[in-house]
Amino acid sequence: MAAGGDHGSPDSYRSPLASRYASPEMCFVFSDRYKFRTWRQLWLWLAEAEQTLGLPITDEQIQEMKSNLENIDFKMAAEEEKRLRHDVMAHVHTFGHCCPKAAGIIHLGATSCYVGDNTDLIILRNALDLLLPKLARVISRLADFAKERASLPTLGFTHFQPAQLTTVGKRCCLWIQDLCMDLQNLKRVRDDLRFRGVKGTTGTQASFLQLFEGDDHKVEQLDKMVTEKAGFKRAFIITGQTYTRKVDIEVLSVLASLGASVHKICTDIRLLANLKEMEEPFEKQQIGSSAMPYKRNPMRSERCCSLARHLMTLVMDPLQTASVQWFERTLDDSANRRICLAEAFLTADTILNTLQNISEGLVVYPKVIERRIRQELPFMATENIIMAMVKAGGSRQDCHEKIRVLSQQAASVVKQEGGDNDLIERIQVDAYFSPIHSQLDHLLDPSSFTGRASQQVQRFLEEEVYPLLKPYESVMKVKAELCL
């Protein structure tokens, strides 16, 4: 049975990233139509530049190519590739079939990587351009969430054990800070992308030097003109047959890092959902379990974690691919890159769409948070109580021993009897502590235990987050809708 299948058929496997999760716009960027249309555009740009620099290419040939950029006979191309065992030459023939007058000058002087690699770089750039505003929107939604809850005390956790208090907004800023680093890295790697350009079979530009009869300047002009037509500021000066596969490492490393950030955020949300302090959106008709109707599973956060793990592992592909590119190139890269580049971007696209949807509907339960604080705060307040007693004339050592005994009794009630923490009640009825009984409410005010959390939130948002989001103001209103 021949390899390949009808990918629109229910009898043929289709990647869930495309069929179930990723956005239509990201799927289109990695589609065959987008790819092969870009090949034709690159052939047109090459012909236009070659004509401008004096090669015998007519206006009629150029116009014929322009008129057929979208006229792609995919069936013919597939048949040609089956016959020739070469995808680029299959599309040269297919393009030439609908451009008979231009057929002889299509791909003039070029090698397969002229269309293959340059198209990949265009796709990487455009895919990054799709991700950047999506990530900015996630940051914006979380920034709104953090600002609104900047002063809401909550129990902090280290080692997932109760620690000092923080605020809900401050905790959210930990998430935002990681995503801001990801946004900066995505922008950097996007701006650092260079075009492969017009380089020939081993990167020496020998074929173009021959076409222009040894004119170095025209060869350099050709490279520059096509690079500018493709919208790049610069091209690699040095290439082998391909652009260095280190570029793929750079791009997928940034995406993998984004995956790590999203995994951490969504894990926190899942843990908070278990504590009943916070939940992701839950639709009115949504079913959490087929057997347990009360369940409210954090399905979206779980999906993000599941896909983020996949995204983090994909960076190993370009690392290994770059390491086995012998001399000017081997074909070890080809099949692998067809999979890992598309999957990385479709996965990143999915987790950003999902995280935006989550961040637009996060639900906080202040009463649950308050109750958990009441359970733990008495123990945390013991040092403040000791200091207040010393100020009232008591002995630190005597007070410490009193607190120690009462704390152990209260802990026994919590752990052995399943009761509430009654340390404060014990202190309130103990005559030894009568000098500070009137101060206990103040000493137990949760806001006095959150330090500068709310001020940190305000400063972080104003100095770091809002300036970073400013270039994306025009796209901030787009909502994230999930079908599944």
Rank of each mutant, 00 (worst) to 15 (best):
A22M: 13
P153S: 06
E473H: 12
A335N: 02
E302C: 02
A256W: 00
N185D: 06
S253W: 09
H400F: 02
L258T: 08
G288K: 03
D144I: 14
N68Y: 13
D317K: 03
Q320P: 01
L331E: 01
L130A: 11
D317C: 08
L482W: 08
R329N: 02
F212K: 04
S289Q: 00
A344P: 06
K82R: 12
A273V: 07
N274S: 12
N185C: 13
L469G: 04
D317A: 08
K233H: 08
L443G: 03
A410L: 05
K402H: 06
A308C: 14
S9G: 05
G116H: 06
S323P: 02
Q241N: 00
K75Q: 12
C99R: 05
G104S: 12
D215K: 13
V390E: 03
L468F: 07
R270E: 00
M26H: 03
T321D: 00
G393R: 07
I176C: 11
I385E: 02
S474K: 11
C399G: 08
P298L: 03
K218W: 08
T267C: 08
V364W: 06
H91F: 05
S151M: 09
V198C: 15
V247Q: 13
I373T: 06
G231I: 01
D191S: 07
T330S: 09
N71L: 11
V168H: 05
L423G: 02
T242A: 08
A411E: 06
E80P: 03
R372A: 05
L271F: 05
L55E: 11
V226D: 00
N353C: 13
R459G: 11
S438T: 15
Q409C: 09
I436T: 05
L186M: 09
K367F: 03
G393A: 06
H159P: 00
M292A: 01
E48R: 05
S323K: 03
L484S: 15
T244H: 15
R37D: 07
R234I: 09
S257N: 08
D430A: 13
F460P: 00
A260F: 04
L17N: 09
A322L: 14
D420I: 04
T321N: 10
Q286Y: 00
F433R: 03
E328V: 01
A256L: 02
V29C: 15
E283D: 14
I72C: 10
I105M: 09
L174H: 13
L211M: 13
H437K: 11
L142Q: 04
G419E: 13
A256H: 03
F232C: 04
L211E: 03
R20V: 00
H437V: 10
P471K: 15
S334D: 05
A90G: 14
S334Q: 05
Q397Y: 03
D349E: 07
C180W: 04
D192H: 09
W43M: 06
A388Y: 05
T166C: 08
E360C: 08
G393H: 08
A235Q: 13
D420K: 05
A410Q: 01
D32Q: 12
Q61T: 07
Q375K: 04
I238A: 09
D445P: 04
A308T: 12
E376F: 06
Q408K: 13
A206I: 06
G203A: 02
A348I: 12
M476H: 15
E228M: 12
I424M: 14
N297R: 03
K229M: 07
C304A: 15
Y243T: 15
P318L: 03
S140A: 13
I269G: 03
C399Q: 04
L271H: 09
T111F: 03
I237H: 09
K367W: 05
G96L: 07
E462W: 13
Y114E: 06
I427P: 03
H97Y: 13
E64D: 12
A18D: 12
Y114I: 05
L183S: 09
N71I: 09
R83E: 11
L346Y: 10
L484Y: 14
F345M: 10
L53D: 00
D332S: 00
L406D: 06
V189Y: 07
E383H: 02
I373W: 01
M380A: 01
D87V: 00
L84E: 14
Q210P: 09
N71R: 09
N118E: 00
D182H: 00
L377Q: 00
A291W: 02
F74M: 15
I373Q: 00
V198T: 13
L271C: 07
E481Q: 13
I358N: 11
W326T: 05
L346I: 15
E81T: 01
R171W: 00
V364C: 14
D73T: 10
I369Q: 07
S323L: 03
Y34K: 08
E213Q: 13
P24M: 11
Q409H: 08
L406E: 04
W45M: 08
R196E: 10
S207D: 00
G240N: 15
H217K: 07
K229V: 04
E370A: 08
S448G: 14
K134R: 10
L186Y: 04
D11T: 07
G203H: 01
G451D: 03
A163S: 14
T38M: 06
A150S: 10
S23T: 08
D11Q: 13
Q356P: 02
Q285T: 13
L314I: 13
A273M: 14
L469V: 14
V465I: 15
P366L: 03
I424L: 12
F345L: 12
V429T: 15
M65V: 12
I287G: 01
H107P: 00
M389Q: 09
A381F: 06
E401A: 15
F236E: 06
I237D: 04
W175Q: 05
C266L: 12
